[in-house]
Amino acid sequence: MKILTGFILGLLFASALWYCLPHVHRYFPDLPVPNLQKPSTYSHQPEGKVLQSLDNITGDEFRSTEGNGAVLYQLKGKCKLTLNIFGESYKEEISFYLHQGKILSAFETSYSYPNGGFYAEAKTEESFETQQHYLKIMNPVNRRTMTLFEEIASQFKPKFIKAC
């Protein structure tokens, strides 16, 4: 009888967890959620057709000593907006995938320059050696994520954002 009761309680607990897990992000927006996608999904690399490119995005959150830039790409069935922020000893990249004005996915990667960013690496394409600090998967329905996207997107021509 104890085994049967334990089995039934286990099934009930597993069912409740399966039902509630997709809704947990509303109450805990920064809770890390397991990633079921391939790691290559999270790439800031250029892709698709460039719709618009901007240098020096305005806003306190995007200020840096070495500048910043954002690019809006047209992909098949969606768009990608990528922001690069350069500092003296770091680099941050934020990418948003969007469709019809809604964020499908967003992620941020932070890098540092281990040598302080003062010496270019010989025989490499990159100016400085970079070391990845973290990859943060951003919740697309989180208020902070949406506000960040809106601040960046507002600086692009509205016709390009609407085309996405």
Rank of each mutant, 00 (worst) to 15 (best):
T109E: 13
V24R: 13
N84Y: 06
K38E: 13
P22L: 06
F86D: 05
P46T: 01
Y27Q: 10
K102T: 10
F156W: 03
A14C: 02
F62I: 04
G6D: 11
N115E: 15
E93C: 03
K80Y: 06
G10K: 05
A122N: 12
G10F: 05
K49S: 12
L17N: 07
E150R: 14
P114Q: 05
H99L: 10
F86T: 02
G87M: 00
G67I: 00
E108I: 06
L104R: 02
P32N: 07
C20M: 15
R143Y: 07
L81W: 03
I137C: 04
G48F: 00
G77A: 02
Q100S: 15
L4W: 11
K102R: 14
S112F: 13
L17T: 06
C79N: 08
A163M: 11
Y97G: 01
E129H: 10
T124L: 07
K76R: 13
P158K: 09
K91I: 08
E66H: 10
G87F: 02
P39S: 07
T82M: 05
S154N: 12
H44V: 12
L72H: 01
R63I: 00
E121M: 12
N142D: 15
L83P: 00
P140Y: 04
S40Y: 08
H99D: 12
Y27W: 13
W18H: 10
V141P: 02
C164G: 06
V141F: 12
A70H: 03
K49H: 14
F160A: 03
N139V: 07
S89Q: 12
Q100K: 11
A153T: 07
C79F: 02
L81T: 01
I8E: 04
S89N: 12
E66W: 09
T41S: 13
F128L: 01
V33M: 15
P158N: 04
S53I: 07
Q45I: 10
A16Y: 03
A163P: 04
E150I: 06
Q131I: 09
I137Q: 06
I94C: 00
S95I: 02
K80L: 02
